[in-house]
């Protein structure tokens, strides 16, 4: 049998046995519908985002309006609740629901931007250190080690007290204290991926280093990165809360979930709703982001097709 006819025959068998690769959007939708948690995550994250954008028209009250007559009103369904304040009021008579709605703006912005900043630095450092190895790797990883040795809160306190607390400083501080975990993660992944033969193949074709990093390494480290970064949006929101609590985070009258939560801490024994509702807002948002991250990881992996 000649080689040619073998080849033809072979192609025929394959054509009949493999399916077409669907377009990105079709896969995207199919994977979304297949994943219940992904769908829930996406809906909640979209909802929270919309709430943050349209806070002004959604909030029933001015979030900073102090009303001594309405101090510590419980939620509407509890005894003594008022329908004017569905989730009750705080110790200064401010409407909790409105505060949570406004707080979503800052919490989301800080959480996402800080993680984006940390991720960008971390992924860059990790890629460079892992791919080039040797002295560059050594220097960068010692830098990572020294960042790990600095207590996050202490570092944040110092920087925030030097530059003064503001949303931007907060994002920068959270960004530069968190990049190390991404750097370590990405470097580890790169070390194993760069031994795979497709990287060798790219080198032997003559692909330049920066292109190998961008086209061959980056897409292959993105999955673990997304999982970790969604988890860390959660911790960042909480870290922001702790800094706000220490008085170095978001300053009144700007509102964040962490801020509301720490305001409510003193009243937790008598008026649980002050801390419970912002706490729930954080928990639900964080869970939704994690769900969304899991789904996103699948979308970005061509192997998760069927």
């Amino acid at each position: 049998m000649s080689v040619n006819s073998q080849l033809q025959n072979q192609s025929q068998t394959i054509t009949s046995s493999t399916k077409q690769t669907p377009s990105f959007f079709v896969r995207w939708l199919r994977l979304l519908l297949k994943s219940k948690t992904g769908t829930i995550g996406l809906i909640i994250v979209l909802a929270v985002t919309l709430v943050a954008i349209f806070a002004k028209s959604l909030a029933p009250h001015d979030p900073n309006l102090i009303n001594p007559a309405m101090m510590l009103k419980p939620p509407v369904w509890a005894d003594g609740g008022s329908s004017a304040h569905i989730l009750g009021t705080d110790n200064l008579g401010r409407d909790i629901l409105s505060r949570i709605i406004y707080g979503s703006q800052i919490s989301l912005a800080v959480g996402i931007s800080a993680v984006a900043l940390a991720g960008a630095i971390g992924v860059f450092v990790g890629l460079i250190a892992g791919y080039y190895g040797g002295l560059i790797d050594n220097i960068l990883m010692r830098l990572v080690d020294s960042f790990l040795a600095i207590p996050t809160i202490l570092f944040a306190l110092v920087i925030l007290s030097i530059f003064g607390p503001s949303v931007t400083t907060l994002i920068v501080v959270l960004g530069i204290t968190n990049w190390v975990q991404y750097a370590r993660l990405v470097r580890g992944e790169v070390l194993s991926i760069k031994e795979r033969e497709f990287v060798k193949a790219a080198k032997s074709i003559g692909v330049r280093n920066n292109k190998i990093i961008m086209k061959h390494l980056l897409p292959n480290v993105i999955s673990p990165f997304i999982v970790i970064s969604t988890l860390s949006v959660a911790t960042t929101i909480i870290l922001e809360a702790s800094l706000s609590f220490l008085g170095l985070g978001i300053q009144p009258p700007t509102i964040s979930w962490g801020g509301i939560l720490s305001d409510g801490r003193d009243y937790i024994a008598t008026s649980w709703w002050l801390a419970a509702f912002p706490g729930m807002a954080i928990t639900i948002t964080v869970l939704a982001i994690i769900f969304l991250g899991d789904w996103l990881r699948d979308v970005l992996d061509p192997r998760a097709n069927n």
């Binding site: 049998m1 073998q6 025959n9 072979q10 394959i14 046995s17």
Partner: peptide
């Protein structure tokens, strides 16, 4: 030249009718 068997081993369960070796 070596003889060769055309095609690839079918994924298990894909051939439901007739001889399993039919495709090759």
């Amino acid at each position: 030249e070596l003889q060769s068997i055309e095609g690839t081993v079918p994924a298990p369960g894909t051939i439901t009718q007739g001889c399993k070796f039919q495709t090759r």
